[in-house]
Design a binder for these strands. Structure first.
Lengths: 185, 185
DNA sequence: TGCTTTTTTTGATATAGATCAAAATCGGTT
DNA sequence: AACCGATTTTGATCTATATCAAAAAAAGCA
């Protein structure tokens, strides 16, 4: 069984048939560093899981790239806008390392939701979990200083320090590279 | 039919029986300005709709109140943490005007999800919609100046200016009252 | 291994927004 | 209408972070 399905089953029950149908629609991608999983304006991946590697979600603000999140092994990620509204994504998703990904395309997912309504419980749990992660991020940006945000980040995701450049981390934190370099000392 | 159910039906289909069961569990609250719908640590309301009035969600950061969101007439709101994890809320919800609210308690909602799995589609859509709202908020806090955030807020929710004090708005924007007062000119 | 490119650090200066204090204005109550 | 408490504005100063420029260090590549 593929690890994406495995992970989905943690959120709720899945019939044998649903499992097979999902497996049939799951894509197994092998990507090199710097390649994209998704570019702004596309409607491709919706739910995906990284088997190996590292990924960043980013968008453009004033013609500059801004990192919105990082993704790592063994977590389910969702591009919610395409799932919710079947609209093209506003963000770009790029690999920061050579990576292996399992993903389900938006069209396939929508079909699966119709064929196997039981999937809606899993989808609800995933979206609710995303809400909680986003709320934590909002509180951090809303009330914490750059130093506090940095300390929170490295305490929660220490591997980022080793695997991601300082510039990418600064962009995620909403500060400049220079400021982050100074915070580190 | 109560307006909360009416609104839920915009997100997905609901059987006659489910509708009746939800109606039976919907509470109709009439609250005065300054009263609370929910205090930190409680597990009460999950989904609710304001028929009349205005509400704020806030939490404490360094012993000071910080406004996280405002709620107005005719929108469905959800305290996601209690729904997702059946854990007490981290936030407080207080009325800023005399208000009338329809709400479903967490325990009732969980029961309803079990009895009427069709509700999961609606719950998924609501959570996905919340995700999109939260993402917009993150981008705003992440990339915009105080002035830009303020302009975005009043262009999107002009009534807040009339119905909410400057201090509450400043707290929501993550700036001081004095700064907001200066921005306004 | 040495060279080129990218990333990180350091320095000097500028700016948005915070803080503290006080004055002015508004709003509800009698 | 007049008062009292709450809200908003104004002023002076301080601080965190940005900006611009350049040096130093690290990483990728021939």
């Amino acid at each position: 069984m593929n690890p994406l399905i495995n992970k989905l089953k943690k959120y709720g029950p899945l019939s044998q048939e649903a499992e097979i149908a999902i497996a049939k629609r799951t894509k197994h991608l092998i990507k090199k560093k710097h390649e994209h999983l998704l570019k702004q304006g596309q409607t491709l991946s919706s739910y995906f899981l990284i088997e190996k590697g590292l990924i960043r979600g980013y968008f453009y603000s004033n013609h500059k790239e801004v990192n919105a999140w990082f993704g790592i092994e063994n977590e389910v990620y969702a591009s919610i806008l395409p799932v919710y509204a079947n609209l093209p994504s506003l963000e770009n998703i790029q690999f920061l390392e050579d990576s292996i990904v399992y993903s389900i395309a938006v069209d396939d997912l929508n079909e699966l939701y119709q064929l196997y309504p039981e999937l809606n419980l899993i989808g609800r749990k995933i979206a609710e979990e995303v809400c909680m992660i986003l709320e934590e991020r909002i509180n951090s940006l809303h009330t914490e200083s750059a130093t506090e945000r940095y300390q929170w980040l490295i305490s929660k995701y220490p591997y980022l320090l080793r695997r991601v450049s300082l510039g990418h981390i600064a962009s995620y934190l909403g500060i400049t590279q220079e400021t982050l370099s100074r915070i580190r000392k």
